[in-house]
Design a protein around this nucleic acid. Structure first.
Lengths: 143, 143
DNA sequence: CGTGAATGTTATGATAGATAGCTTTTTCCG
DNA sequence: CGGAAAAAGCTATCTATCATAACATTCACG
């Protein structure tokens, strides 16, 4: 092989992630969403009333960067904000947000299923384990 | 588990990739490079005289986006351009480029090694296979 | 009570990636 | 040969993502 990068797990990880992300984004385009929006909707769906900061922590999105994301989804009528206490606010899906979230789940499930099915059978059982381990490893290594 | 995303391979893939990338970039900072620069240097090192377009294809970077990258590395004296024919130009590492490239190899090797060593032993043998398969799967799924 | 931490926010910059269009040059086929 | 099509490099522009710093308000805790 002439490609000096194909044997580097970190590089292959990046390429795989970029390719998968592009696919997911294409699948989310009809909903007018990006993967970041989709992930936030899923998080809020799983934990209604979750704080903006807390959701950001869960998704590894910084406080400052959450602002435009939440504002966008609120402007589209998918997300409601309610003051939780004086400084923090809980996020909730609106009715339409629930509908769109269901569409997101479909898109994501299809995406994940196709990805999974494109794997050689003997690797399918290891995939999630390897990825989860890599996630933890990568966060452990840089701290 | 309260996290609806942790069981989605695609999401875990993205998080693992982001974390690993952040670590690598931190490791490349002392060299004044970003991972994109590093990957180009490695490609040119492996195939001196490779065309700018061809390198872009190998790295999945579009022609238009290669321009500032190559310009930056040339401006720093790491990369030489020589006209290959009337329309294309070959890329070569300068002397300093070779030196920096060696530093890149060190940084990348260390990064990859630490990542690998942070994996549970029983998963190490599968990691590259799974990632390569995911890469291909993701590209096959979206086309 | 008062200090420090947390939350949301604004503003700003750097990096990545995508698209469209242009010029020059090469390729290829009739 | 000659002209159409493709390829290479480039410019310009736009979007998304991510990172930092600073600020005001509010809460937590000793």
């Amino acid at each position: 092989m002439n490609d000096p990068l194909a044997s580097l797990p970190g590089y292959v990880l990046r390429r795989a992630s970029a390719a998968a992300l592009a696919g997911l984004n294409r699948r989310l385009t009809p909903l007018g969403l990006r993967h970041v929006d989709a992930s936030l909707l899923l998080v809020v769906h799983a934990r209604p009333g979750i704080t903006q900061s807390e959701a950001g922590r869960q998704l590894d999105i910084q406080r400052a960067n959450m602002v435009p994301i939440v504002a966008r989804l609120e402007a589209r009528g998918l997300l409601d904000r309610r003051r939780a206490d004086g400084r923090s606010q809980g996020l909730y899906l609106s009715e339409e947000g629930e509908v769109v979230c269901a569409g997101v789940r479909d898109a994501v499930d299809t995406h994940e299923r196709l990805l999974f099915e494109a794997l050689p059978i003997k690797l399918r059982g290891h995939a999630l384990d390897v990825l989860t381990a890599l996630w933890q490893a990568a966060e452990a290594v840089d701290g």
